[in-house]
Amino acid sequence: MKIYNANKIIPGLIIFLGLITFPMWYNMGKAAPPPEIKFDTPVIQQMAVKQCVLPKADMRTGHMQLLNEWRTQVVRNGYRTYVAADGKEYNMSLQNECIKCHSNKTQFCDQCHVYAGLQLGSVPYCWTCHIAPKEAK
């Protein structure tokens, strides 16, 4: 059967298909495995039991919620000590506590965040105010 206005409809359809399949040609068939994150900082290497504030799985998905809680506790309530489930005490601070152990911010925090597609520039924006650790590039 005849196709009417094919000179407009077919290019339009091709543009639409091009847009909707964007991820398929943008990556050009390259899979991107998640980054290898590094724990080889001096502080972590000296730890007998290598553990984070929360169990690893909880940290992995929920560290921003923990940071949010810490921030509220410090900035609004004035408490600075966090007692973990196993009784260990932590100073509720982004740049003094997390970064004490994870002093390799660009190899650790940023690796994940760039891969997860958080806003570029100051992945995340916290570091526009908080002081990022000095690292040998």
Partner: peptide, 10 residues
């Protein structure tokens, strides 16, 4: 993301 990238890159 690994899953999604896997799908997008076949």
């Amino acid at each position: 993301k690994e899953l999604a990238m896997g799908l997008a890159s076949f």
